[in-house]
Amino acid sequence: MKRPFQKLTYLYLLIGLGMTLFLVHCGLTALTVTVPTQAKANEIATFYMHSGAEPQIEEPNTYTTQLLAGIMVPKSWNARKNAVLTYTSSKGNGTLRMIPDAETEPVSGLSWHEAAKKMFGIGPNLIDDFEWIIYRSTQSFTFVNNEHQTADLSFDVKVECRVGPENMLASLGFYVGSSIENLRPEDTDYKKYTFSNPLEIIEGEGDLIDFVNPQLGTVQPVKSLDNDIVTLTFDAGVTNTDLDDMDEIYLSAKAFDETGQLLDEITTRDDKTKLTDVGGKKFILDLWPRGYFNIQKESRIAKLEYFYTDATGTKKVGYGNTDEPFTYTFRCE
């Protein structure tokens, strides 16, 4: 009874060894991207990914796969609905389709989109309001050993995406991979990803949302309502201000409703308004706006205007280190 199991074990070992040899010697070339420095809000922008295949396959001498390509863009672009990905290559041209959410990436057990977010992160962006979206080519490709030595196996992926209504400065993420692989951390051959130089969206709505440069004051989550718990951060390391070397930083804030009417103003300096020093010259304050300002049931806070002050309240810092207050508008879209 022992022998069939032994044979099975040998078979698994052989398959494992074969797969290892097969995987070690094949891969993709470095990924480069072409992204404009500016794009107009609500218009379609075009980005390109450039890469290629290097099939050094020992066994079984051919490798058949589909192309994976991914983008990391601001959530507000709604790219899942409006991005279109196509590719051109010496092996043919075609389209890529978004991988369904229900399909899991084998290593992480997450959807491919969540797995990519977990693995690649948000690159040089400092505020997280981005989503990774992974696509797969509808066609398959077969490579033979050392094919790249005699043929051009480079390919380009074209991304066309409407960029959303907001003015912003953001670095975008890009990924190419092979469908029969996974996102295992140690692999550097089959997953290539990079982040673009900052892209500025112009002629759109609202103040510039700067994801790339350190900000004196930020609010997380980027999208929230007055019943969310928000975290206000003052980063004293960004530039020299009147609050340099202060041990205690306080919030001085006003809450307005949709009509612009002042609902409440809190300028006291006490435990409630004191920010917590979290190191690295950063101070944070977590607050539930409705409770912080004691808002009545029928009222809604639409906007906050605020400054950061010292313990005496005489020194204060506003948006961009000016006398203008920081502003935060509560919204989900």
Binding site: K75, P221, K223, S224, L225, D226, N227, D228, I229, F330, C332
Partner: peptide
């Protein structure tokens, strides 16, 4: 969610 559906608590 408390506010925006994108924020989960």
């Amino acid at each position: 969610s408390l506010g925006c559906s994108s924020n989960t608590y």
